[in-house]
Simulated scan of single mutants.
Amino acid sequence: MSSVRDRAGALTRHRLLWPVVILVALLALNVAFTDNFLHVQMRDGHLYGSLIDILRFGAPLILVALGMTLVIATGGIDLSVGSVVAIGGALACMQISGLADQNSVAGVLSAIGVTLVVALALGAWNGFLVATVGIQPIIATLILMVAGRGLAQLITDGQIITINSAPYKLVGGGYWLTLPFGILIVIALTALTAFLTRRLALGMFIEAVGGNAEASRLSGIRSRGVLIVAYTFCGLCAGIAGLMISSNVSSADGNNAGLWIELDAILAVVIGGTSLSGGRFSLSGTVLGALIIQTLTTTIYSIGVPPETTLLFKALVVTIVCLLQSPAFRQKAFGWGSRRPAPPPPAPGDGSGPLLTDVAIGEQAREETVRNR
């Protein structure tokens, strides 16, 4: 009986339990309000259905959240990812719109390559400001958040750039192997991130820097390099997300593309169980958190929540998830999980107590000196 209770307690303490419960609850709510919500069908060689749409539309958020996870694990934050998304989409669409043949595969690949290089440079710039210059992450990335949005509008000349390119459409709106191509990109990048952080030492370095940057530096870890790598990777993820968003709508809007996606990414990371103070992180939790955010958006539309209360509804659900993840809240509200009792003090003379301190030894020596006199 005690083993069953211990297993149940361990299950309730698992950091992914409550996000899974919330995701299942949201899916059940959609099933109640939407006919054939769970139905997935094959049409024209492609998979279609509400679940596929959640994965497809949530793919950019998952990518941005993956990069944000590594940055937050270092104890930082990146508020500029939305601007990098806008810059990426604007830069790619501007180059493709200038091609004589917008369906040229070489021209599209060149535009994508230039965009990814710029995204890497923007991420490295954030890392340079944080790691080398020593600016606080929230300030360093706020600079690019403001300036980057203006740069995106400068690239588009304040207009919405529209393109008609079949190869570029594949990135965010096309299908391959019956699945949306964006989902395949997310799977590949998530697997690569998991390999780099869990099979190599990079993940351990990131957690060490996030736990204590000075201690990790003294132990031989190049904390500056780790920070720059984390922010550079975050910029790359945001750039790919910008390509996917602009490709899906075949246009670039420097003003609205990626607007507030940084907040959704931070929420996804927090819901997934990664602490904002840095240290340990969970990639699977981040992916789950991003799916919760996208499913919540779908739920809002399906149950007919008024548009003016959408953000309030989203904030309410996110608050509930965060509270359920807190062991202290569960203990106070529901009595779930018991605190471990403090170990009893050692019995005198059992050999487990502390030895005489220097002060006690000094007092004993003085008493012996007085007696001898």
Results as ranks from 00 to 15, higher is better:
5 R>H: 05
7 R>E: 14
8 A>M: 15
9 G>Y: 10
14 H>V: 02
17 L>E: 11
17 L>A: 12
17 L>G: 07
18 W>D: 04
19 P>W: 12
29 L>P: 01
30 N>R: 01
31 V>C: 02
32 A>T: 04
38 L>D: 04
50 S>Q: 13
50 S>N: 15
51 L>I: 12
53 D>C: 02
54 I>S: 03
58 G>M: 11
63 L>I: 01
63 L>Q: 01
65 A>F: 01
71 V>R: 02
74 T>E: 15
80 S>V: 04
82 G>R: 15
83 S>R: 14
87 I>S: 09
87 I>G: 11
92 A>F: 07
93 C>L: 08
93 C>Y: 09
93 C>W: 09
94 M>Y: 05
97 S>T: 00
99 L>P: 01
105 V>P: 01
109 L>Y: 06
112 I>H: 02
115 T>W: 13
116 L>E: 00
117 V>D: 05
120 L>F: 10
120 L>W: 05
126 N>P: 01
127 G>N: 01
131 A>I: 07
132 T>R: 05
135 I>V: 14
135 I>P: 02
136 Q>S: 10
137 P>K: 06
142 L>I: 07
143 I>H: 07
144 L>K: 00
145 M>A: 15
151 L>F: 15
155 I>N: 05
157 D>M: 15
157 D>Y: 13
158 G>F: 12
159 Q>H: 13
159 Q>T: 14
161 I>N: 09
175 Y>H: 04
176 W>P: 02
178 T>N: 06
185 I>C: 05
186 V>M: 05
188 A>E: 07
191 A>D: 00
192 L>S: 09
195 F>R: 06
203 G>V: 07
206 I>P: 09
207 E>F: 14
208 A>H: 01
209 V>I: 00
212 N>F: 02
215 A>I: 01
218 L>M: 14
219 S>G: 11
225 G>M: 08
227 L>Y: 10
231 Y>V: 10
234 C>N: 15
235 G>R: 15
244 M>N: 02
246 S>G: 06
251 S>D: 12
253 D>M: 11
262 E>W: 12
266 I>E: 04
272 G>C: 05
276 L>E: 12
277 S>H: 13
277 S>L: 15
284 S>W: 09
289 G>M: 06
289 G>Y: 03
293 I>K: 02
302 S>V: 14
305 V>D: 00
306 P>M: 13
311 L>I: 01
318 V>P: 00
322 C>F: 08
337 G>K: 06
339 R>M: 07
339 R>A: 12
348 P>V: 11
351 G>T: 04
355 L>H: 12
362 G>E: 14
364 Q>V: 00
365 A>N: 03
371 R>H: 06
